[in-house]
Simulated scan of single mutants.
Amino acid sequence: MAGTTRRRSLGRISGENAVIEVAWMYYHDGRNQQDIAEALGISRATVVNYLQEARETGLIRITLAAPAFTAHRLSLELCTKFGLAEAYVVPDDGLAPDPAFARVVRGAALWLPDLLAPGDRLGVAWGRTVYALAERVENRAIEDLTVLQLVGSMATPYGFTAEACSTRLAQRLGARCLNLHAPAVLSRAALAEELRAEPILRAQLQALQGVNKLLFSVGTVSENSHVVSSGLATPEELAAHVARGAAGVICGRFVDAMGRQMPGETEARMIGIDLPRLVGLEMGILVTPGLDKVTPSLAAIRGGYVTHLATSTRVAEALLAAA
Score class of each variant (00 low, 15 high):
T313Y: 00
V105F: 00
A175G: 10
G30P: 01
Q52E: 11
G107I: 15
Y131P: 02
P157A: 04
C251E: 11
N32H: 13
P235S: 02
V22A: 14
P296I: 01
A109G: 11
R196P: 15
T313F: 00
R140E: 14
R103H: 06
A164L: 12
K293I: 01
F82Q: 02
V89T: 04
V242C: 09
A310V: 05
P157F: 10
G30K: 10
N32S: 13
R172L: 12
V249L: 07
Q34I: 04
A87Y: 08
G83S: 01
P97D: 06
L238V: 02
R128N: 08
T146V: 14
V147H: 01
P113N: 08
T63D: 10
R61A: 10
M262S: 04
A141R: 15
A233P: 09
A65T: 04
V105E: 12
E223G: 02
L201S: 11
G94M: 15
T307D: 02
A54G: 06
M258L: 03
A190M: 08
P296V: 00
A268R: 14
G152N: 01
A300S: 00
L150E: 02
R277W: 14
M270F: 14
M283Q: 15
R202W: 09
R253P: 15
L215N: 10
R202F: 14
A45E: 09
P276M: 13
P99S: 14
D120S: 12
A45R: 06
Q171K: 10
S9Q: 08
R6Q: 14
L95W: 13
A190G: 11
L122E: 06
L10R: 15
A132F: 01
P263D: 11
L133F: 03
Y27S: 08
S75C: 01
A299Y: 00
M283N: 05
I285T: 03
F160E: 05
G252E: 12
Y88F: 15
C251L: 03
P289G: 04
P157H: 03
D35A: 05
T129F: 00
W24R: 15
P263I: 10
L110Q: 09
A23H: 04
T234R: 03
H181V: 06
V104Y: 14
D114Y: 00
L205G: 03
Y26K: 10
L150I: 02
A96C: 04
R31G: 06
V227A: 11
G210M: 07
L278P: 04
E267R: 06
A310G: 07
A233G: 01
D120V: 10
D93G: 05
T234Y: 05
G210C: 09
D114K: 10
F82H: 05
L173M: 12
G123N: 02
I142W: 02
V279P: 02
E38A: 12
R103P: 08
L201N: 15
E56Q: 09
M1I: 13
I42P: 07
L291G: 07
C251V: 13
S43A: 08
L208A: 12
D92C: 09
E194T: 11
E143G: 14
L178P: 01
L195D: 07
L148V: 06
L169P: 15
V287W: 05
D29Y: 03
E38Q: 13
R121S: 13
A164G: 06
A125I: 01
G41K: 07
G152V: 09
D98N: 08
P276N: 03
Q149V: 09
E236K: 07
